[in-house]
């Protein structure tokens, strides 16, 4: 759950009080897990600022931003990057043009993780994962992994960014434990005991299994290795149930720079991915038709406030005329 409470943000380029522009004036917004929210609003209505505040590009003057019960208001952009998958308006921004598709995806799979200065940056098991994911996206890129991202078309780049943003995250056991405590609603001490206890139990089990396999003389060394890996994978998947950070997907007008046909394709793809993988999604768009057609909640921004917030049945029956009327009314 993402929760913005009383968020105020103003810009002042000159320092004089009369030049102060308040973009958000006490914004309150709660987004529940698994919701697909579309956001519309005129330029300058505060929707981009809201996105930037959520991702940490800028910080609010006052108010707080909470994610799953943990306060992330003061966390730096790179520190909170692992909670958010982002696709930008500019297709050039989400990928590194001078790097290959493979390199771009390698960076994305390590989002928010420690970058080791010793370990080689390319992994064989990652490559298989990427090829599979690219096949699923049907971009015709699975055979062009070494192509520079700059040589792809805008639509392909946007789709690649979307894929990178929705890549399965495999946080380390340490960060799972840390996040479990951070994002627990109630007693932090109790949560810590809980997760550490569970971790210790599972780890002991794994170690016992491992020594059992090692002591067994009836199997060959290679088989032993295989069995140990299997046991570790079991332990790993079991512990990953404690991973509370399901990344949010933030789409900032990600089809605005594409031609209508490509935009439609990327949007269909977005919808498919969001529905299949159950991402909590925020999608900013200028296209009212898309805002109505996709998602299960619609929010309209105007003058730094939410003027319309509809969901469920009500949203399904919404028509473009209603939105236009609303726009007129606000101005």
């Amino acid at each position: 759950m993402l929760k913005l409470t009383n968020v105020v943000k103003s810009f002042n380029s000159t320092g004089k009080p009369e030049d102060k522009i308040t973009v958000l004036n006490g914004l309150n917004l709660t987004i529940n897990d698994g919701e697909f929210v579309t956001i519309i609003g005129q330029n300058g209505s505060g929707k981009s600022t809201t996105m930037n505040l959520i991702t940490g590009v800028m910080f609010p003057d006052s108010g707080s931003i909470e994610l799953n019960g943990g306060d992330i208001t003061k966390e730096k952009e790179h520190a909170r990057a692992r909670y958010f998958g982002r696709v930008f308006q500019d297709p050039m921004m989400g990928t590194v043009a001078e790097m290959s598709v493979l390199e771009n995806m390698e960076i994305a799979i390590r989002r928010g993780k420690f970058h080791s200065p010793i370990k080689w940056g390319f992994r064989k098991e990652h490559k298989e994962l990427f090829i599979e994911a690219l096949k699923e996206f049907d971009l015709g890129l699975e055979n062009r992994l070494s192509a520079k991202a700059g040589t792809l078309s805008g639509g392909q780049r946007q789709a690649l960014t979307l894929l990178m943003a929705t890549m399965p995250q495999l946080p380390s056991h340490k960060s799972i434990r840390k996040d479990y405590v951070k994002f627990s609603y109630g007693d932090k001490q109790k949560a810590m005991e809980e997760v550490e206890g569970a971790y210790k139990l599972l780890k002991d089990e794994f170690i016992a299994k491992k020594s059992e396999i090692k002591a067994d003389n009836s199997i060959s060394k290679k088989e032993k290795k295989e069995l140990i890996r299997k046991a570790f994978n079991e332990f790993d998947t079991e512990f990953r149930k404690y991973d509370v950070t399901k990344p949010l997907l933030l789409l900032d007008e990600h089809t605005a720079a594409l031609d209508p046909k490509t935009a439609k394709r990327v949007l269909t793809l977005t919808n498919k991915i969001v529905r299949e993988k159950g991402f909590t999604t925020l999608m900013v768009t200028h296209n009212m038709k898309d805002a109505i057609a996709y998602g299960d909640r619609l929010i309209m921004f105007a003058g730094g406030e939410i003027v319309l917030d509809v969901k469920g049945e009500e949203k399904k029956n919404l028509k473009i005329e209603d939105l236009l009327n609303q726009f007129e009314k606000v101005n």
Partner: peptide
Amino acid sequence: RTTGLNENMARSQGIN
């Protein structure tokens, strides 16, 4: 390398 080539993207990928 990512930082040098596309700093915004690097930050959004959690690179300090």
